[in-house]
Simulated scan of single mutants.
Amino acid sequence: MITLDKIDIKNKIVLLREDLNVPFDEKGILSTARIDAALETVRLLQEKEAKIILMSHLGRPKGRDEQYTLQPIADYLSEQLKQKVTLFNLGDPLPSLKSRSVALLENVRFYAGETENKEALAKQYAELCDVFVIDAFGVSHRAQASTTGVIQFADEVCMGPLLAKEITMLNQALDNPRRPTVAIVGGGKVSTKLDVLLNLIEKVDVMIVGGALANTFLLAQGKNVGASLVEPELVPMATQILNRATQLGRTLWLPEDVVVADSIDSPSAQVKNLAELANTDKIFDIGAKAIVSLEQILLSAQTILWNGPLGVFEREAFQAGTRALAQLIAKSKAFSIAGGGETIAAIEQFGVEKQISYISTGGGAFLEVLEGKVLPVITALQEREAQINDINTVKL
């Protein structure tokens, strides 16, 4: 696919789609991590003497809603770049742009047709620029006017360095991994991770299943899970995945002991073997024996994929499993890649950001890659490149 290094952008207007959807409250921006990552690409474009228009969404407004304005982001960009970054609306006169200057288009979700990927809006975006650069992995799973739509109509298009890095890292972990490869899939429900489980069992050597979704697998094995959260209707699917793991000679890891309580707010918790569970017990974390067995698996791994916690790590009584998991991955010499909102929250809570090889910036996009799906943005880039190649062939 066409990347930024293959296009001459000197003195050209570059429309740069980033993911600046940062958390915020009434006091302002809570985390600038996504903006800081995008600034690396902005500075690269400046080095190449481009005229830059940034675009992004923020939140989920239903039309124009000033609480979702990108003005605070424009102010932060101005501070970091030490130059004025002008916020403007689609349809307004384009700000005066010189080489290395930066403007910011107001929240793309203010404009009718954005989420529906309307052609008319995509064409309006394309008319703003000479070159469109898609660099937002976090929205690469969405076919919208500012992602896949504008790719069809801009004069020149390419993949930005942040998106390219995400794709490279995920390909390294999924398609050409060092082995043994271990995947950790945690979270609340099998239904939300079913496609991930089905895809990864075909690719990895060990799949660690944790969190509440492990309960359905334990139930499929005939284990007592007390009053824990389960999805009985998905027991047949869990059985199918367990059987597939056996057929392939893979290991599907489940905890042998767990931390239980009457409720998530209970002041007391107990560690029990599965055979000891009472009918009123609810599982909220893995136990000490399970943690020891995880250590053996993770410290011998060469590639680790992590998506989802092993317990309710937000509560001190139920955080030991996820804390141990984070610390073991940090200690491991494996290439490790992690993604998803809860996973990143756990990584930050336990202070292991610098020990994870790569932390993905995309939640939904990360999941879709783990599911084995081709992201719509990648498909659009491939189709546009094929179209350009066909035109060039005709010219020859």
Rank of each mutant, 00 (worst) to 15 (best):
V85L: 07
V85W: 04
V85A: 06
V85M: 08
L87T: 08
L87Y: 14
N89K: 14
N89E: 15
L90P: 09
G91T: 09
G91E: 03
G91L: 06
D92F: 10
D92W: 12
P93C: 13
P93W: 03
P93V: 11
P93T: 12
L94T: 07
L94F: 06
P95I: 06
P95F: 01
S96Y: 11
L97V: 02
L97A: 03
L97Q: 04
L97Y: 01
K98I: 12
K98W: 00
K98V: 13
S99R: 11
S99D: 01
S99W: 00
R100E: 14
R100A: 07
S101C: 00
S101H: 12
S101K: 04
V102S: 02
A103Q: 02
A103M: 01
L104K: 03
L104C: 06
L104V: 01
L105G: 02
L105Y: 01
L105T: 02
V108C: 15
V108W: 02
V108R: 11
V108M: 14
V108H: 08
R109L: 06
F110Y: 14
Y111D: 07
G113K: 03
E114G: 05
E114L: 11
E114N: 09
E114K: 12
E114T: 10
E114V: 10
E116V: 01
E116T: 14
E116Y: 07
N117E: 12
N117V: 11
N117G: 05
N117C: 11
E119L: 09
E119V: 15
A120P: 00
A120W: 07
A120M: 04
A120R: 08
A120D: 15
A120N: 13
A120K: 14
L121A: 09
L121F: 11
L121K: 09
L121W: 12
A122P: 11
A122S: 15
A122L: 09
K123M: 13
K123T: 09
Q124F: 02
Y125N: 13
Y125F: 15
Y125S: 10
Y125P: 12
A126K: 07
A126M: 04
A126R: 07
E127L: 14
E127C: 11
E127R: 14
E127M: 13
E127Y: 11
L128K: 04
L128Y: 06
L128S: 05
C129T: 07
C129W: 09
D130C: 09
D130T: 04
D130M: 08
D130H: 13
V131G: 05
F132I: 12
F132T: 07
V133S: 12
V133Q: 12
V133T: 12
